[in-house]
Lab assay of single mutants.
Amino acid sequence: MQRVNMIMAESPGLITICLLGYLLSAECTVFLDHENANKILNRPKRYNSGKLEEFVQGNLERECMEEKCSFEEAREVFENTERTTEFWKQYVDGDQCESNPCLNGGSCKDDINSYECWCPFGFEGKNCELDVTCNIKNGRCEQFCKNSADNKVVCSCTEGYRLAENQKSCEPAVPFPCGRVSVSQTSKLTRAETVFPDVDYVNSTEAETILDNITQSTQSFNDFTRVVGGEDAKPGQFPWQVVLNGKVDAFCGGSIVNEKWIVTAAHCVETGVKITVVAGEHNIEETEHTEQKRNVIRIIPHHNYNAAINKYNHDIALLELDEPLVLNSYVTPICIADKEYTNIFLKFGSGYVSGWGRVFHKGRSALVLQYLRVPLVDRATCLRSTKFTIYNNMFCAGFHEGGRDSCQGDSGGPHVTEVEGTSFLTGIISWGEECAMKGKYGIYTKVSRYVNWIKEKTKLT
């Protein structure tokens, strides 16, 4: 034993070699072989497995989906700052455009905790909710729209109204504003409101030439003092309507412009014939205590009207009353817009006519005020429907199939267009061939041609 100890002390290297040989010859039971080890760690190889990531292109799944990435790591994937920024906006807080917040056709661009709407022409605001041009839906104005110097929408209202708090709607500024039905039992019968379409306001006024200088022999019209197929109006439903009495009662109609003036057809009036105007009328054979009678003290036909040349060209006249009318729910003026808007309103496509005229061709006159909704007829169809001249200051309205029309005794009465609950004068009943005849239409004086003249002559002093 002493000898062994001496050998170990003198030859430590020998001992180490012996131990190493023993270990190498022993069977290893701690580690699995290569094949079995792979069965336990069965993990798919990654895209760049075996390579240094710093030297390969980034992978979106590896960089940002398996674990949260930084902007720089995302930049490695896209290799483009702009594309990385677009991805980053949604990656950080989701897609803010998912709810489609942009209105009126706006395009949404996502941002971090926010979004941006790219608005089409005519709109602005956070969600493109603000109209900035009158060309689109009248700028959301209830009545009139004008573009300011910086191309912003400025709404306005006709006389007797003021802008509401929203700067879009119009509200009454006087007790009985024009064009409004205020009798409670008839307010439910107000005709369907007309909503502004998209309009090209630059070209809204037709490029028409008034044929002022045409000389033409007097034409022989049949029954051209021209509501057939209409309905009984309720008291106060058309408070701007008046009836004219002269040699015979209810020979023509008219509309209240203001307390002192009536507008009617020029062919209705004769110099030297006494005319009485009755406002607030409903049943011409009954006294309903809503009527107001006034005498006409002055007749002003349009300066281009000449019955000797043509009885229905420039067929418009103004009547001055001896005493002002007292405005109330049964006696209310009709609204008159400017030339541009009167023309736009007419193009809405349908209007209402009213009167006490004959209820059928050569038949009896109506006792109760009649009204009828009539569609506008395109000019080409209008011209083809008659052998008589249709001037540019006239328009056609009615039904091709016949059966409904204005008729004798309705002449001078109103053709009105309702705009968001307020009625505007767009025409004056003038003439036609018979009444409600198939293929024939009622012919009306186009008020847009005469609004400046009306307003100039009827100013209240």
Rank of each mutant, 00 (worst) to 15 (best):
V326R: 09
C252P: 01
L19Y: 10
V248M: 07
F224R: 10
T16D: 04
N245A: 07
S365M: 11
P12T: 14
F221N: 10
I429V: 11
P239I: 01
S406Y: 12
D232R: 12
A233N: 07
S448T: 05
N304I: 04
P44I: 14
V374Q: 05
L60G: 02
V296N: 00
A266D: 01
S156L: 09
I7M: 14
C69R: 00
D405E: 15
A26S: 12
N113L: 09
R379A: 08
E66M: 05
R294V: 02
R83A: 14
L103R: 09
L41G: 03
L318M: 04
N48E: 02
N452R: 09
G349I: 02
K146W: 10
G272L: 06
T133K: 13
I390H: 11
D223V: 08
S385G: 12
E286K: 09
K440E: 12
Y312D: 02
K347F: 05
T386S: 13
C407F: 09
I297A: 08
A233Q: 07
Q143L: 02
Q237R: 06
L130Q: 13
R226D: 11
A9Y: 14
E193R: 07
I40Y: 09
Q2F: 08
V154Y: 13
S49F: 04
R3P: 13
A397Y: 02
R62W: 01
C396D: 01
Q2I: 09
F251K: 08
E67Q: 04
E10Q: 09
I344C: 05
A26L: 07
Y330H: 10
K347T: 09
M437T: 14
V419Y: 14
I299R: 06
G349K: 07
D378K: 07
R294D: 01
G179R: 00
K274G: 14
I300F: 06
V228C: 10
R379F: 10
V4L: 12
V331I: 07
A308V: 10
G413Y: 15
F221R: 11
E27Q: 14
K234W: 15
D223I: 10
C396V: 02
P177H: 02
V183T: 10
M65W: 09
N295V: 08
V331K: 00
S49C: 03
F87Y: 07
P172Q: 07
A317P: 01
F388K: 11
Q185M: 10
G355W: 15
V92I: 13
V56T: 14
R379M: 15
R384H: 10
F388M: 11
E67I: 00
P301I: 11
L460F: 10
S107W: 06
F360N: 15
A26K: 02
T190D: 09
G236A: 07
A149R: 10
G246V: 05
V174I: 08
E159D: 12
Q90I: 11
E129H: 09
K109N: 11
E231F: 08
C252G: 01
G94E: 14
Y91V: 05
K234Q: 08
F144S: 01
C157L: 01
L321Q: 01
T29D: 14
G58M: 03
G355Q: 12
L327R: 06
S107F: 06
N213R: 08
V263M: 03
V353I: 15
A308C: 06
T133V: 11
V195I: 10
G246Q: 05
S217M: 13
E35L: 07
N36T: 11
A233S: 09
K260P: 01
N343R: 07
I443K: 04
E165K: 12
S448L: 02
L319H: 00
D378C: 03
F31I: 14
K260M: 06
N313F: 07
R364V: 11
C128K: 03
F123N: 05
V263Y: 01
E340I: 11
W431Q: 15
N328T: 09
P172L: 04
C119R: 02
S182P: 06
C28E: 05
L346H: 05
E10N: 13
S406F: 15
D150L: 11
V277F: 00
S182C: 04
P235Q: 09
P172S: 07
G21R: 08
S70L: 04
R43V: 02
N42H: 12
T190I: 14
I297K: 11
K339P: 15
K39H: 11
E259G: 04
K455Q: 08
F87P: 02
Y305R: 09
Q370N: 08
G230C: 12
T85S: 08
E340N: 09
D93A: 09
K347A: 11
E124C: 05
S11D: 06
N283I: 09
N113P: 07
V183Q: 11
D322Y: 03
R384W: 04
A317F: 00
Q185T: 15
M6P: 06
T264N: 01
E320F: 02
L325P: 00
Q167K: 05
C335L: 00
V77S: 05
E285I: 10
E281Y: 08
G122T: 05
D223K: 08
N213A: 07
T84R: 03
V4E: 12
G253Y: 06
E53G: 00
R404E: 05
I390N: 11
